[in-house]
């Protein structure tokens, strides 16, 4: 085994954790190598005096710069995940593209049969099967989304939230579920994606109100930032009291405080 340099033994000799017996051995070795006890003690005292060298605390600018960078990177990552998360949406699109013509033919045949049937059996109850089918597909998507939102995996929940972007006009049930996700999902990326999805339904006053009310329920600086930015984009003046309430929070992140103050001044 390669032996440590003699200088290395000094560090073991000075180490308080070294057993006394081993220290005695080391001392003998070091004295034999030409070191004196006074020299070693003097150096140890000097080493200990280094502990008094002061170090200032990092400034607030470091925090600001870091949280700004983190918000940007999270937004970037969110966009990337959302693109991957669009896979279920693409799946449905493909199903629609490939299956719908076939379903159309099938429906045409059924419709023909129904027309013939009503001729043969006057008074039979009719109805638009096409509408019913479209409603069923929509319902099915809704079910998939709701089921995905219950998953433990954040990426599954992220996909579900992204799937909801497909609706041009979300119904009350979807809005309620998304609002609940925004307020209570443990994953910040899911909550950020929910803000993004809900921002598509801001024509709905319930959604606007829900987003405003959620501002002070959020703990993550990133979600607080996303909501404040959204209020700025929407020029939502009625969000001012909630944003001001957020500014009263002494624990509020510096970067968020800067941005929220800016948004409030713009409203």
């Amino acid at each position: 085994m390669k032996r440590d340099p003699i200088e290395a033994l000094v560090m073991d000799y000075w180490d308080d954790a070294t057993p006394p017996e081993r220290k005695r051995e080391l001392k003998q070795e070091l004295l034999a190598a030409g070191y004196t006890e006074a020299e070693l003690n003097d150096l140890k005292r000097f080493l200990i005096s280094l502990d008094d060298m002061p170090v200032p605390e990092p400034g607030e600018e470091l925090d600001r710069a870091f949280y700004r960078m983190l918000a940007e990177e999270t937004a970037k990552a969110g966009r990337k995940t959302a693109r991957n998360g669009n896979k279920p949406a693409l799946f449905w699109k493909r199903i629609e593209q490939q299956l719908m013509p076939k379903l159309g033919y099938a429906f045409a045949l059924v419709f023909l049969g129904w027309v013939l049937g009503t001729w043969v059996t006057p008074g039979a109850v009719g109805g638009s099967r096409m509408e019913r089918m479209a409603a069923e597909i929509s319902e099915m998507k809704e079910m998939v989304m709701l089921a995905q939102l219950q998953q433990d995996s954040p990426s599954e929940r992220l996909k579900a939230v992204t799937l909801a972007e497909e609706w041009t006009d979300a119904d009350a049930k979807i809005v309620t579920v998304l609002m609940r996700t925004l307020d209570s999902d443990p994953n910040v990326n899911v909550r950020l994606a929910t803000v993004e999805t809900l921002s598509r339904f801001t024509d709905n006053p319930v959604v606007r109100r829900g987003l405003i009310e959620s501002i002070n329920r959020q703990q993550s600086p990133l979600v607080q930032l996303a909501l404040a930015e959204l209020m700025g984009r929407l020029q939502e003046e009625s969000a001012k009291p909630e944003l001001n309430r957020l500014l009263e929070n002494k624990e509020l992140n510096y970067a968020v405080r800067d941005r929220v103050s800016h948004v409030v001044s713009m409203l």
Binding site: D4, P5, I6, E7, A8, V10, D12, F46, L47
Partner: peptide, 11 residues
């Protein structure tokens, strides 16, 4: 061992 020796030389 090299680290320890370097620390001592640095001191």
């Amino acid at each position: 061992g090299t680290v320890k020796a370097r620390v001592f030389r640095a001191i």
